Amino acid sequence: MSHHTHARPVTPLRTDEELAEGVYQLLGPALRRQVWLLFLDEESYLQPLLMPCDDLPEPMTPANSLTFGRFAGVAVEHSGASSVVLVVERPSGPLLTEADRGLMRGMHDGCLAAGTPVRAVLLSHRRGVRWVARDDYGF
Rank of each mutant, 00 (worst) to 15 (best):
M1I: 12
S2L: 12
H3F: 13
H4L: 08
H4F: 00
H4N: 02
T5Y: 00
T5Q: 06
H6K: 09
A7V: 07
P9T: 09
P9S: 04
P9M: 08
V10G: 11
T11I: 06
T11M: 03
T11C: 03
P12W: 07
P12A: 15
L13Y: 01
L13E: 08
L13T: 02
T15N: 10
T15K: 05
E17Y: 05
E18I: 07
L19V: 03
A20N: 04
E21S: 10
E21Y: 10
E21R: 13
G22I: 03
V23G: 07
V23H: 03
L26H: 06
L26Q: 10
L26T: 10
L27S: 13
L27K: 04
A30G: 02
L31K: 13
R33V: 06
R33A: 10
Q34L: 15
V35A: 00
L37D: 01
F39R: 11
F39Y: 09
L40N: 13
L40P: 15
E42N: 11
Y45K: 08
L46D: 00
L46G: 04
Q47V: 09
P48V: 14
P48A: 14
P48M: 08
L49Q: 08
P52M: 05
P52Q: 05
C53I: 14
D54C: 11
D54R: 07
L56I: 00
L56C: 02
P59Q: 05
P62D: 14
A63M: 13
A63Y: 12
A63C: 12
N64K: 00
T67Q: 13
T67C: 05
T67M: 10
R70S: 04
R70F: 05
F71T: 15
A72Y: 04
G73K: 06
V74K: 06
V74R: 13
V74C: 11
V74F: 07
A75G: 07
A75S: 09
A75P: 05
V76T: 07
V76Y: 07
E77Y: 05
H78L: 15
H78A: 15
H78K: 15
G80T: 08
A81G: 12
S83W: 01
S83E: 10
V84T: 10
V85A: 02
V85S: 03
V85N: 08
L86G: 10
L86W: 14
L86V: 11
V87E: 15
V88L: 10
V88N: 01
P94L: 05
L95V: 15
T97L: 08
R101Q: 14
G102I: 04
G102P: 06
L103C: 06
M104N: 02
R105V: 03
R105N: 02
G106Y: 08
H108Y: 09
D109P: 03
D109Q: 05
G110D: 13
G110N: 11
A114P: 01
A114S: 09
A114T: 07
A114H: 11
A114Y: 10
A114V: 00
A114Q: 01
T116L: 12
T116I: 14
V118D: 13
A120F: 09
A120Q: 13
A120Y: 13
R126Q: 11
G128H: 12
G128Q: 05
V132N: 01
A133Q: 13
A133N: 09
R134D: 02
D136P: 01
D136N: 00
Y137N: 09
Y137R: 04
G138A: 04
F139A: 00
F139T: 01
